[in-house]
Amino acid sequence: MSERVLVTGARAPAALDIARSLKTAGFEVHMADCVPARIARWSKAPAAVHRHASPVQQPARFASDIRALIDRLDPIAILPTCEEVFYLAALAEAQGWSDRLVAPQFDRLATLHHKGRFAALCGDLGLPVPTTTVVTDSTSLIGDAAGTDVVVKPAWSRFGAQTLIRPDATALAMLRPTPETPWVIQSRITGEEVSVYAVAHEGRLSAFSAYWSDWRTRGGAAYVFEPLTGPVLDRLRDTASTLAAFVRTGQFACDAIIDAAGQPWLIECNPRATSGVHLFGRSAAFGHALLGRGVAEPGPNIWRNSIMFDTFGVAEALCKKRLPAWHEDRRRSHDILSAPGDPAPGLGALADAAGFGLLALTSHRSLAQAMTADIEWNGQPLTPALWGTP
Rank of each mutant, 00 (worst) to 15 (best):
T274N: 14
E202M: 00
A354S: 04
K44D: 14
R38L: 14
A256Q: 04
V56L: 03
G203E: 12
A53C: 09
A325S: 13
D238H: 11
L290E: 02
E193H: 05
A63S: 13
D144S: 13
A119G: 10
L361H: 09
S283L: 12
S2E: 04
G388A: 14
E180I: 02
T383E: 14
G96P: 10
S54G: 11
G299P: 01
A222Y: 08
A240Y: 07
A68G: 14
D137T: 06
I76W: 01
I336R: 00
W377L: 05
C269A: 10
E84F: 00
A260M: 08
V196L: 15
G250N: 06
S275V: 04
T163C: 05
D310V: 01
L125W: 13
N305C: 05
P104V: 03
A15M: 09
S157D: 07
T8E: 08
S98A: 14
F309W: 02
V150K: 05
G341Y: 08
L236R: 02
G357D: 03
V152H: 01
A339D: 07
D33V: 01
A253E: 06
L382Q: 03
G294E: 10
H288V: 02
D99E: 15
R176E: 13
D255T: 07
E83R: 03
T81S: 15
E180W: 00
V129H: 13
E268R: 02
R304V: 04
V29H: 00
P59S: 10
A373N: 07
L109P: 04
P298D: 09
N305R: 02
A63W: 08
E316W: 05
V135W: 02
A339H: 14
R188H: 09
L228D: 03
L172R: 06
Q369S: 13
S209V: 03
I257A: 00
E328K: 06
A261R: 13
V7W: 08
T24M: 13
D335K: 09
R216G: 02
G203H: 08
T136D: 12
A221D: 11
L88K: 09
A53Y: 03
Y197N: 10
A94L: 02
L359V: 00
R204P: 08
A344N: 06
E83T: 06
N378A: 11
G281W: 14
A317C: 03
L121D: 08
V199D: 05
S2I: 01
L91I: 05
S138I: 01
E84R: 02
T389H: 15
V196M: 15
G230T: 10
L318Y: 07
I18K: 07
G26L: 01
D234L: 10
E328H: 11
G276D: 09
D17G: 09
I76L: 10
L101R: 01
A155Q: 09
L109I: 02
A244S: 12
L291F: 00
I302E: 12
F86M: 08
T311M: 07
A89N: 12
A198H: 10
P182I: 04
L323V: 14
F252R: 03
V85S: 10
Q58S: 15
L127P: 11
R20A: 15
G281A: 15
L266D: 06
A37N: 05
H334R: 15
R218H: 14
T178V: 01
D17R: 15
T311Q: 07
A10M: 06
P128G: 01
P46D: 11
L291H: 05
